[in-house]
Nucleic acid binder design. Structure first.
Length: 155
DNA sequence: GCCAACGTTGGC
DNA sequence: GCCAACGTTGGC
C-alpha cells in the first residue's frame, strides 16, 4: 500500500466534483508530465490512498482522501482530436500517456492548508514544500499521510 | 497579475 | 547533445 498526493485546481475539478460523480469515481486524465505518468503507470495499485490537494486557490491545501480505483490504462483523451489533452504523438498502438481511476473516500472535517503543512516539522520533507516543485502527483510517506489525516479529521 | 522554477521543443 | 526560446505551474 502506497500513499500519494494529487493536485487539482478546484475550478477545473474539485474534490466535491469527485464526490458528485456517478460512483464517486473519475479517470485522472490529462496528465502530460512523464514523472507523474510513471507514478500512475508503474507504481500505483488499487487501494493506494490519495491526499486530494486543491491548488491555485485560496487557500491551497488538502481537502480529503481519495483512493486509486483501477489499474493503469491508456489516457484516451490523448487520442481525441477534440480534447484539450489531445496529443498527436500518442499512438493508440503504443500509448504515451496513462492514467488510473480515482475514487472519493473521505472528506476532511477541515482543510489541512499549505500554511499548516509548512509549520509542522514532521512534514517538512514533503515534496509539495520543496522549492520549485510543480509535479501534480507525488509520493507521500505513511507517517506523513497519517499525520495529515489526523489533522484533517479532528474537529 | 507577477514571476521563479521547471519541462519541453527544435534548430544547430 | 547542447541550449535558447517558449509554455506552464502555482504560490503569493
Amino acid at each position: 500500500m502506497r500513499y500519494w498526493l494529487m493536485k487539482s485546481e478546484p475550478e477545473t475539478f474539485s474534490f466535491q466534483d469527485l464526490k458528485n460523480r456517478k460512483n464517486q469515481r473519475e479517470p485522472w486524465d490529462g496528465v502530460r508530465n512523464y514523472q507523474a505518468r510513471n507514478f500512475m503507470r508503474d507504481s500505483m495499485s488499487i487501494g493506494d490512498e490519495i491526499l486530494f490537494y486543491h491548488s491555485n486557490t485560496k487557500p491551497p491545501g488538502i481537502v480529503g482522501i481519495a483512493e486509486v480505483a483501477s489499474h493503469p490504462y491508456p489516457d484516451y483523451t490523448a487520442f481525441d482530436e477534440k480534447s484539450k489533452y489531445f496529443d498527436p504523438k500518442s499512438d493508440p498502438e503504443n500509448p504515451r500517456w496513462f492514467l488510473v481511476d480515482v475514487a472519493f473516500k473521505k472528506d476532511f472535517n477541515s482543510m489541512v492548508s499549505l500554511e499548516q503543512i509548512k509549520v509542522i516539522p514532521e512534514l517538512s520533507e514533503m515534496k509539495i514544500l520543496q522549492k520549485g516543485n510543480r509535479l501534480s502527483i507525488t509520493p507521500v510517506s505513511s507517517d506523513e499521510f497519517a499525520l495529515i489525516c489526523a489533522h484533517g479529521l479532528k474537529n
